[in-house]
Structure formats: structure tokens, C-alpha cells
């Protein structure tokens, strides 16, 4: 499939993903283009075998990079960064997401961050996350458990 066909088929999905995470049309558009750059770089690998999963997780990854940069150098004063991601309705779960993603942006491996967003924000099951990331369910479970442990540790150290 050529680039134009790939864009026509997957571009809207990728842009919607970037819009949802970034809440910034211009940045979302740029990130969408960068997502396709990554697809081209990946060439004939597994990326082209399952483009929607590859593009979705790559877009998520790139959006997290932008969000992390914003946290270090806030562009919009008072912007609640994590709330932009935590689009889930349930307040209790959103609190969990804030804790998890707070740790993610502190330096947890990016693919684990993507995993956390897919599972805790987007509501995918472990099996669905595993399929999207081309990983085993046990691998995903282990990584998320590790992430939770780190969050608890960091919370403990943050206590006065």
C-alpha cells in the first residue's frame, strides 16, 4: 500500500488519537505526520502487517513525549496535564491514572507508559493491550505490576 492509501485509510484514526491526548489541533496534526514517518521508517516489518495497532501505539508514544515536554516546560499555565489524558469518567480510576502517569512521566520506560495509557485510560483489557503491542499477556501484566510498585514507592518517598 502506498503512503497516500495508508494516510487515507489510517490518517483519521491517528489524528483522532493525537487530538484526544494532546487537545491541541496543530500539535496533533504534526504528531500525526510524525507517526507516519515512523511507519515509513519501520518499512516492511511487522508495522505494515498490522498498521492500525502500530500507528495507534506509535501515536500514543509520540503524544506522551509531547506531554512530558509540556510538563517540563509548560506551554499553558495552569493546564492540568494528566487530566487531559485521564478521559475516563470514573473519578476513582482517574485518580489511579494520575498516580500511574505521574510516575510514567518521571522516567518509566515509554512503552510501559503507552501500556498504562492503553489499559488505564483507554480501558483496553490486558489481552487487548498485549495484542496492540505485540506482547504476551503475562508480559503486559508483569510490566504494569512493576509500574504500580514503582508508583507506591515514589508516593512513599514523597510523603513529608
Amino acid at each position: 500500500m502506498d503512503l497516500e492509501s495508508l494516510y487515507v485509510r489510517y490518517g483519521p484514526m491517528v489524528l483522532r488519537r493525537c487530538r484526544a491526548l494532546l487537545k491541541d489541533e496543530e500539535l496533533a496534526l504534526e504528531t500525526m505526520q510524525d507517526t507516519f514517518v515512523q511507519l515509513l521508517k519501520a518499512g516492511d516489518s511487522l508495522a505494515l502487517h498490522a498498521p492500525s495497532s502500530f500507528l495507534y501505539r506509535t501515536a500514543t508514544h509520540l503524544c506522551l513525549n509531547h506531554i512530558r515536554t509540556r510538563k517540563r516546560h509548560p506551554e499553558t499555565p495552569g493546564e492540568e496535564l494528566l487530566l487531559a489524558l485521564a478521559c475516563h469518567q470514573d473519578l476513582e480510576e482517574r485518580a489511579v491514572v494520575r498516580q500511574l502517569l505521574g510516575a510514567v512521566f518521571g522516567g518509566v520506560h515509554t512503552s510501559t507508559a503507552t501500556m498504562a495509557v492503553l489499559h488505564y485510560v483507554d480501558g483496553l483489557t490486558l489481552e487487548e493491550v498485549a495484542r496492540t503491542l505485540s506482547m504476551s499477556v503475562s508480559g503486559v501484566r508483569k510490566r504494569l505490576a512493576s509500574l504500580k510498585t514503582r508508583v507506591k514507592l515514589e508516593e512513599f518517598h514523597d510523603e513529608p
Partner: peptide, 19 residues
């Protein structure tokens, strides 16, 4: 709506430039 707002020919060119 997205494909009308961001036509394939324009976006593909931008992606190629970025690549």
C-alpha cells in the same frame, strides 16, 4: 471531514518532507 480538511496530497507531501 478529516480527509477534506487535510487532503491526502497535502499531508503526504508533508510526511515525505518530514521523512
Amino acid at each position: 471531514a478529516i480527509l477534506v480538511s487535510y487532503p491526502p496530497r497535502v499531508i503526504v507531501h508533508k510526511i515525505q518532507e518530514r521523512t
